[in-house]
Nucleic acid binder design. Structure first.
Ligand SMILES: [Zn+2]
Ligand SMILES: [Zn+2]
Ligand SMILES: [Zn+2]
Ligand SMILES: [Zn+2]
Ligand SMILES: [Zn+2]
Ligand SMILES: [Zn+2]
Length: 729
DNA sequence: GAGTTTGAAACT
DNA sequence: CAGTTTCAAACTC
């Protein structure tokens, strides 16, 4: 799959069991209750993942919501799309939020939701969304590092774990976020039902973006066109949402499509939906198998031989979508591709969730991969694909604009389909390149060394790998391996870069805004590159180094550990380490920057203040507990974006990312802040990150180096999944 | 395109 | 958790 990642990261898939009523049930309640905070409990586990996934941003409110983490719910909802990249939703999109193009993207996000939705419906979601995460956190894990503190992480982990375990449920989403989002939606919706408004309230704006991890660019691409389409759908969604939650729940799962809304979605949506359905169904069946596999995996893992799989599907890339869904999506996370894909689709359908305001976007930006290509052939799954379809269009537009430059393959892809095509462009090079994917010789594309695998997507033609097992045909193997890796490191497929919340609008605090918000989940360990080359994952991801980094002589132009960001050039100078506490200045820069991105990747924030979070779910998050929450971040997204580019904003100041990427996935997280905060003082620096993390990101497209970031994008979600889907081309 | 450098991932 | 090996990307030529 390349797919995912974007994000994410594929990984993210969520799994949720239906059964697990645990989550689901609880969650819902929670929602109802609202208190998100409290919710934790249950959700704990699940949530964790979810958390990541979803962050959303809300635009206006300032906050954005970062829910991400935990609250996936809210976020989720919003996010859904994004992340979901995957599946869901597509259709939706857009409009809502924003009118702007962006909106489109957003819509996508929603899509994601769908997944969630479905899941949720089952109840799974619920958990996540709400409290789950938090709770989870408790539990677990602890990761020592920063995260540990934070509950989020733990939570997250839990989720994953849960997920994995359950496999059944998994939705697969890659990105957790997605799932979450969905869940959120669902939950919320339902809840909302109670309070319908709630969501809305949460995100008043519409804009929430999500970033999915997405790793792949794709998202963006989607864009615009979709939007149009979506719109209609959206409405429906909206409507739906408002109204009866009920429908959601039930419908979701299975039939997402059933929902009328779905119908609207249109083809894309359909797919999505179907998949979900399929997925679930499949899951059911498969799940077992999977699990078994999983179990085996451990042993097997490595070798392809095992493979087991078998069956499968084979080849069929073409339809990947369909195939997967049916088959197994479950894999969860893994989704690698498939799963992801499936998920996405499904998600899409769900409309309900969406809050009115929320927008979603996928950020495709990030994505590195080019999904397009991949998808096509492969599985499309990926998010991208799905996205594309659905969202694609919409997004595209939006994205395009900014991105354009950035371009990102994805868009291209998407566009292609659609009319647009937006992006054409980019340079060829980019495209091409970008598309390229892995070149593995010895890992069989079943280890994190493989960018495709790490991103949660299947290898596709642009890959030059040898003896590749990362193909739909070997789905079983892929999933099993994936599971093993996750067992070892729950964050392995999570987006590498977490975004932070965006802007924090509100709050004032200081931190709030930091632009910088985004940080690498684990931090780098550079010794010779001074964090000035892509060898450095922080740099590659377009983010500054954080406290978590153990780099020597760091000169990361995006920010040193301490925080300085540099946005400007100036900053850079500083160098060194040191920490500085707060940054304040940043604010300024940030702002500048920020607005640029706003959403973008970078975002802001870490700092997040509580306020931001607040809102919605967010609030809960962080503060609440004390902990940090870090974990979550979430989601993904990738974000990065491109920004730079010209266009738009310009970033003047900004350094650009190197490439960037976008690719990387970032997640946003509103939560992040917390995390970060945790670390240091709370606010001050940022940093922090968690140790764990894994990556999710998708491969990026290489090309893009430029700086990018950018743009546009809104939210992100990224999910993780990463899928890269992408198009590529 | 071949060869080198680099740091993450995997392994011990 | 540290040390070493493996790996593939990033970079150089
Ligand atoms: Zn590979
Ligand atoms: Zn590959
Ligand atoms: Zn491969
Ligand atoms: Zn570094
Ligand atoms: Zn770093
Ligand atoms: Zn550094």
């Amino acid at each position: 799959m390349c797919v995912e990642e974007h994000v994410l990261a594929s990984a993210w898939i969520l799994r949720r069991r239906t059964e697990s009523g645990l989550l689901g049930r609880k969650s819902r309640h929670r929602f109802a209750d609202q208190s998100r905070t409290d919710d934790f409990d249950e959700g704990t586990k699940d949530s964790s993942k979810g958390e990541f996934v979803g962050s959303f941003q809300l635009p206006e409110n300032s906050v954005k919501k970062d829910f991400d983490l935990e609250h996936p719910v809210a976020e989720v909802n919003n996010n859904r799309d994004e992340q979901s990249e995957v599946p869901e939703v597509l259709p939706r999109t857009l409009d809502y939020d924003n009118d702007t193009p962006a909106s489109e993207s957003k819509s996508r996000v929603f899509i994601d939701q769908r997944d969630a939705g479905s899941a949720e419906a089952s109840g799974l979601l619920g958990p996540f969304s709400q409290g789950t995460v938090r709770e989870s956190s408790d539990r677990s894990d602890g990761v020592p590092g920063t995260f540990e503190d934070t509950p989020h992480r733990e939570r997250l982990r839990l989720h994953w774990d849960n997920l994995s375990t359950d496999a059944t449920d998994l939705l697969v989403m890659d990105s957790p976020s997605e799932t979450r989002a969905f869940r959120g939606l669902f939950d919320k919706t339902p809840n909302t039902g109670e309070n319908p408004g709630s969501l809305a309230s949460l995100f008043p704006d519409s804009t929430n973006e999500l970033q999915l991890a997405q790793p792949f660019c794709q998202v963006e691409t989607v864009g615009v066109e979709m939007g149009q389409q979506v719109n209609p759908a959206e409405h429906s969604w909206l409507q739906n949402l408002d109204s009866p939650p009920e429908s959601i729940p039930c419908g979701l799962e299975e039939g997402t499509h059933n929902n009328s809304s779905d119908g609207q979605l249109g083809s894309t949506s359909h797919q999505g939906v179907h998949r979900r359905c399929l997925t679930f169904e499949t899951f059911g069946g498969h799940r077992e198998s999977l699990s078994s596999v999983a179990t085996r995996l451990p042993s097997v893992p490595l070798q392809p031989e095992e493979k087991g799989t078998s069956r499968f599907k084979q080849p069929g890339p073409s339809k990947p979508v369909s195939a997967y869904p049916l088959q197994r999506v479950k894999p969860g996370i893994g989704l690698h591709l498939n799963a992801l894909a499936a998920a996405k689709d499904e998600n899409i359908s769900v409309p309900e969730n969406l809050p009115p305001g929320v927008e979603i976007r996928v950020s495709s930006s990030t994505t590195p991969f080019c999904p397009a290509a991949s998808q096509d052939s492969l599985r499309v799954p990926l998010d991208t694909a799905s996205y594309l379809e659905d969202a694609g269009p919409l997004r595209m537009d939006t994205q395009t604009s900014e991105d354009d430059s950035i371009a990102i393959a994805p868009s291209e892809e998407l566009s292609s389909t659609s009319p647009k095509k937006k992006r054409p462009k980019l340079t060829h090079a980019e495209d091409d390149e970008s598309c390229k994917r892995c070149n593995c010789k010895k890992s069989k594309c079943l280890k994190l060394y493989c960018e495709c695998f790490a991103a949660g997507v299947y290898c596709i033609e642009p890959c030059s790998c040898q003896d590749c097992y990362n193909k739909p045909i070997h789905e079983d193997t892929v999933l099993a391996t994936r599971k093993q890796i996750e067992a070892r490191n729950p964050l392995a497929f999570a987006p590498k870069v977490i975004r932070a919340a965006q802007a924090v609008p509100d709050v004032g605090d200081e931190m709030a805004n930091t632009p910088a918000s985004a940080r690498h989940k684990r931090g780098c360990n550079c010794k010779k590159s001074s964090c000035l080359k892509k060898y450095c994952e922080c740099y590659q991801g377009g983010v500054g180094c954080s406290l978590n980094c153990r780099c020597e002589s760091c000169k990361n132009t995006f920010g040193r550990k301490d925080g300085s960001e540099v946005d400007l050039e100036v900053e850079v100078k500083t160098e060194e380490e040191e920490p500085r506490p707060t940054e304040k200045g940043i604010g300024d820069r940030q702002k500048a920057v920020v607005h640029i991105n706003e959403e973008q990747i970078l975002d802001p924030s870490f700092p997040s203040t509580p306020s931001r979070l607040s809102r919605l779910s967010v609030k809960l998050q962080f503060p609440s507990k004390g902990k940090p929450m870090r974990s979550s971040f979430l989601s993904i997204g990738s974000s990065a974006g491109s920004q730079n580019e010209t266009r738009g904003v310009k970033l003047s100041s900004i350094p650009l990312p190197p490439k960037f990427e976008q690719s990387i996935q970032t997640a946003h997280a509103e939560e992040m802040p917390e995390l970060l905060q945790n670390q240091g003082s709370p606010r001050n620096t940022v940093k922090s990150n968690s140790p764990n993390g894994k990556r999710v990101s998708p491969p990026q497209c290489k090309s893009r180096p430029s700086p990018s970031r950018r743009s546009t994008r809104r939210l992100i979600l990224q999910a993780i999944p990463s899928h890269p889907s992408m198009n590529q081309q």
